[in-house]
Design a protein around this nucleic acid. Structure first.
Lengths: 354, 354
DNA sequence: TCGGTCGACCAATACGTATTAAGGACAGCC
DNA sequence: GGCTGTCCTTAATACGTATTGGTCGACCGA
């Protein structure tokens, strides 16, 4: 098995069979056009291809405008770190499954990590373009990168709702608005009238959507927004027993908590409750606006859960749709979250009548 | 914003600035060669590039260079099914990490799944070759595919030891021989003299290696092979309390169990022990020759554990080594397993003197 | 003024594939 | 035999970049 110095090309096949490169291309790229080729030629070409161990050069095919049958997956954070594992893995699962079902291969842009910071345009080059299209994933993204990506018109779909001013972009997102609204309804129907909402600081879309859902939920129940607390969590350490006690004595009976990436916010809430001598859910109901990051917490939180696997699948579906009929339209999809009734909510304690 | 029908190229920049495409290329690809360009021109080009929103066409660049800076990952089973998750995930982790560190991208050959059966040579064409090299992973592989793959000389590294008659192929494998030998030593040093070894049926390399290690371990302790039981497990249901009781009354004091992919074998052993009224480890020590598939078993088995993440990393390292200096040599690496002392072994029960 | 040197740029080409207009062989028909 | 048409194949070209041998002009020293 002497090493062949150069990968065989269509020209090599052509020479061997005694036809032209164009004919080889017709056969190889298959399907529609290849029935113009005589069956005998066709077989000879395929045979030679097999013998030489030919594979199409993806770069060349792409260059000409052809398809690579590769979909890219770019994540703004590394996907695989173990602590993020449970968060990202289901997305991956869905993306991989759908990619496979449609007969595409999946290209993970790991190299972006190399420089430490994770950028699309490392060295002015947009690696993504070797793929036919790309699924983007991650919470912390460079707005500049995203803007530039939109500016070229390369097909991509975001997992998670993203906005770029003046641009329409494709995404599949969890319906945080509706899910949060439903959570509020769940509380108000149990009689809670005064709620505290702990939102993450920063102005990310998921946070904004939850807050919108919160306000809609209040409207539904006819509760004035002024009757509730909205607290922006900059530092989980700032969620003290003191703070919580203040809220409770002001008539707050339920907490809505937006989970952070680590479980620090949730942990802080539990700690604060302990410090304040408040039992969950007897003295204070708690609802999580999303999945607890580390999954295996001792408590079975009432919460909603993102259909992450489904979101991954849908992202691929949208992307392929985008590829197949290239109108300039953005595809946007909101998937419903699944409400989970845990043991962290109850009726408001008796005697609390705000 | 109107989609620009065509992305700007170096030619566009060249026209705008009034230089040739070649000069633009010199400036853009930067670094070493670009100091041949006058500073004034240089700046003009860069400015125009910025104004036009130019980015390098990755495909075109690749076309010239040969390398794609992609490494492939091909698995003979689907990687992502949830039930296999804990088995495959650490390999993936390691592969991805190393791939990223070396600045490569990772191509998952998902499309292979499409046809139901998982073959490399779908349609007579070897998809793998779009990547510079490939890491192969999985227990059940088509020997034909592998043989053919070796025959063309495409650089790849197997995770897990594989043999193809007459060929030298590259792999990184767990040192099953040494690890099993050490397990036997652990038992014999505690006084066990009569062991039963439950091996999987089938003639896979991992099974053979473990058996080799078993025999070496017996040699070390001066135990004749005939004094021990080697039982091939075709059907876990066949491991009955009856069978175990027979062994125990024949003086067997310890079991070495090769875990299957599901946990059926291990479960069968526990069930048999219960039926036979034998406590583990008081009446019968048990050692696992590998990781229990489902991790979270109630019992803390004495076993050895594969350094799966490390194996993934090493596979990539070997592969890149293979790419960079292309002698025809195969790279082979055995990594040591980590022995884990659980609570499933003890001294042999008193009164048993074979 | 002339030969020489050097800096700055250009023209040409290769990379491997897809596509298309055009060419050639061959058969059928009048 | 000439005409038309069908079927198969080819030649040519485009895609966007990197590279290299070469050219052109300026500048310098003698």
């Amino acid at each position: 098995m002497a090493a062949q110095r150069r990968r065989p090309t269509q020209v090599d096949i052509a020479k061997r069979v005694g036809v032209s490169q164009g004919t080889v291309s017709l056969v190889i790229s298959g399907g529609a056009a290849s029935d113009q080729v005589a069956e005998k030629t066709r077989r000879a070409v395929l045979q030679a291809a097999a013998e030489l161990g030919y594979t199409v050069n993806a770069a060349a095919r792409r260059l000409k405008g052809g398809r690579t049958r590769m979909l890219g997956l770019y994540t703004f954070e590394p996907v695989f770190p173990v602590d993020q594992r449970d968060f990202y893995f289901p997305f991956l699962l869905g993306v991989e499954e759908a990619t496979a079902r449609y007969g595409y291969d999946l290209l993970l842009f790991s190299s972006a990590t190399a420089g430490g910071t994770r950028r699309i345009y490392a060295g002015g080059v947009n690696r993504l373009k070797v793929a036919d299209g790309c699924v983007l994933l991650g919470r912390h993204l460079h707005r500049d990168d995203l803007a530039e990506l939109v500016h070229e018109d390369f097909p991509f779909v975001f997992i998670g709702r993203r906005e770029v001013p003046g641009e329409e972009l494709s995404y599949v997102a969890a319906d945080y608005v509706g899910a949060t609204r439903d959570m509020v309804r769940g509380l108000t129907e149990r009689g809670h009238r005064r709620l505290a909402y702990l939102k993450l600081s920063g102005d990310q879309e998921p946070t904004r959507d939850r807050e919108a859902g919160f306000r809609l939920g209040l409207d539904d129940a006819g509760i004035p927004a002024g009757a509730c607390v909205v607290h922006s969590v900059d530092d989980p350490g700032a969620i003290t027993g003191e703070l919580l006690r203040g809220w409770l004595s002001a008539g707050v009976t339920a907490l809505l908590v937006e989970p952070s990436e680590d479980d620090s916010t949730i942990a802080a809430v539990e700690r604060a409750a302990a410090e304040a001598g408040a039992r969950i859910p007897e003295d204070c109901s708690v609802v999580l606006l999303g999945d607890p990051p580390l999954g295996e917490g001792a408590r079975d939180w009432t919460r909603f859960s993102l259909p992450r696997e489904e979101m991954g699948r849908e992202a691929v579906r949208l992307l392929l749709d985008l590829l197949d009929n290239d109108d300039g339209e953005a595809r946007q999809l909101n998937v419903a979250c699944m409400p989970i009734l845990g043991d962290s909510i109850a009726e408001p304690p008796a005697g609390v009548t705000p």
